[in-house]
Structure formats: C-alpha cells, structure tokens
Design a protein around this nucleic acid. Sequence first.
DNA 1: ATTTCGTTAAACCAAATGGTTGAATGAAAA
DNA 2: TTTTCATTCAACCATTTGGTTTAACGAAAT
Lengths: 114, 114
Amino acid sequence: MSNAESILNEDKIFAALADKNRRKILELLHAGDSTLLELNKSFPISFQALGKHIKILENAHLLTKETQGKYRKLSLNREALGVSMKWIAYFSDFWNQSFDKLSQQIDHNEKHDQ
Amino acid sequence: MSNAESILNEDKIFAALADKNRRKILELLHAGDSTLLELNKSFPISFQALGKHIKILENAHLLTKETQGKYRKLSLNREALGVSMKWIAYFSDFWNQSFDKLSQQIDHNEKHDQ
DNA sequence: ATTTCGTTAAACCAAATGGTTGAATGAAAA
DNA sequence: TTTTCATTCAACCATTTGGTTTAACGAAAT
C-alpha cells in the first residue's frame, strides 16, 4: 500500500481546489516550477495573500516546496490530484462509459477556457 | 459544441465539491435517486441546512430536481462531474501516464474510505 | 557590516459559509 | 376542509475565508 494514501487528505484537497486563484497556481506550475514572487506577477493580489494560498496547497500536498538558497522552488505534485480524480471518477461512473463519451468528456486537445 | 459547455461552471462545481456533506450527498445519489427528507436520515444536520447544500449542488448542476407530487426527486448529474474530471485530468497529466500508474491512481475496486 | 531580496508572520477586516430556529407554502391524506 | 407531510423562505449567528498592511527573518549581494 502506498504511503501517500495515509497522507493525502480528500477534504484538504477538495477544499484547496475550490479557490480559483489556487487552481491557477496549479495551472502555472503545470507549465513548470516557480517561486512565490515569480508566480505573483500573474496575480492581482499581494504576494502575502498568494503565500497563504500556496501554504494551503502545500498542506493539501498539491505542491511541494524546496529551499534553494533564498528561494523556495514550488513544484506541482500530480499524485495528490489523483486523489480527487479517483473520487470523481468513481461517482461519475467514468469507467462504465464508452470510449467515445470518455474522450468527449476528457478532451485534452481542447484548451481550457477562463 | 455541447450546450453543457456554456452552462457548466468550473468555479461553482469545484466550490460545491469542497464541502464534505455535499460530497456525501452525491455519494448517496450515486446509489440511487432520493429526496430531501430521505437523504436527511443520513446527516446529523437539520433538513433546512441540508436543503441549502442541495441548492448549491443544483446551482452547480451536479444534481437535478424533479417535482413528483409533493416530493422532489433528486438525481445525480454525472455530466457535471466530468467538468472537474476534465480539469484535473489535464493538470495531472492523466493521459501521459502508463496504464499501470493509471489503474493504480483510479482503482474502482478499492472502496472509498471515510 | 549593511543593504537588498524573497519569504514568512501577525494583526486586522469585510464578506462568505454553514449552521440554527420559526414561519410559510403547497400537495396529499384524513 | 382540516391536518399532515415535504419542502422552501427568512432572520439570525458564529466561524471561516480571503484579502489588506506592517513587521520580522534569513540568505545574497554590495
């Protein structure tokens, strides 16, 4: 059994994903690792506020923080996303659908709006 | 283009999924349609409070309400779950993973804890 | 040794959230 | 036609949330 099971918390993860700014942080980290001040260029809020969002994502293990000199390197942890993925997949009857409906539902060619 | 695209709102859906009671409502509806008072037997909160949660899920189109006499039949709308599924799948690099890792991440044989 | 840079901590605030109780509505049963 | 049953509405409340500003801290650069 994976150790992640015992650490990754459904409650914290779903709560973390509820905020638009926090989802945007994950989107940006998907493109590559970053830092607080670097990320802050993409947000209209203070870096202190952004720091709080990052801490929430960190507590949910959706991102990891690695100290490098005076910087903190922020990286997306895709494993934690898998927890909510699993929950949703189960209740949306993901695996019981036809391949057509599947690829229609999850179309990774289509760009995300908003 | 599907009409659902224009109706289903990522913000509302993720916000709706953030609450444990609301996720539990969806879990119960996954087992079968129900009504407010019927569902309420499974919750320690008032039926009025539960009614508010149901309204939030309804606004996010995660469930539908159908009037049948004096009852309101509540049904899970799996299509809306697909929206968050889609978002998460994209950023977790779902499709780029090996089949082994995939089936490990989404294991629908394993029962959901909590 | 000082200053600058990136980050974290603390105090504070308005608005949103999740709960309560009591009253109102509308269909079904008596 | 009352009464009961399922649901909704409204007022209220405590806590949480997401933001602000000011201050502190530790590593890097001057």
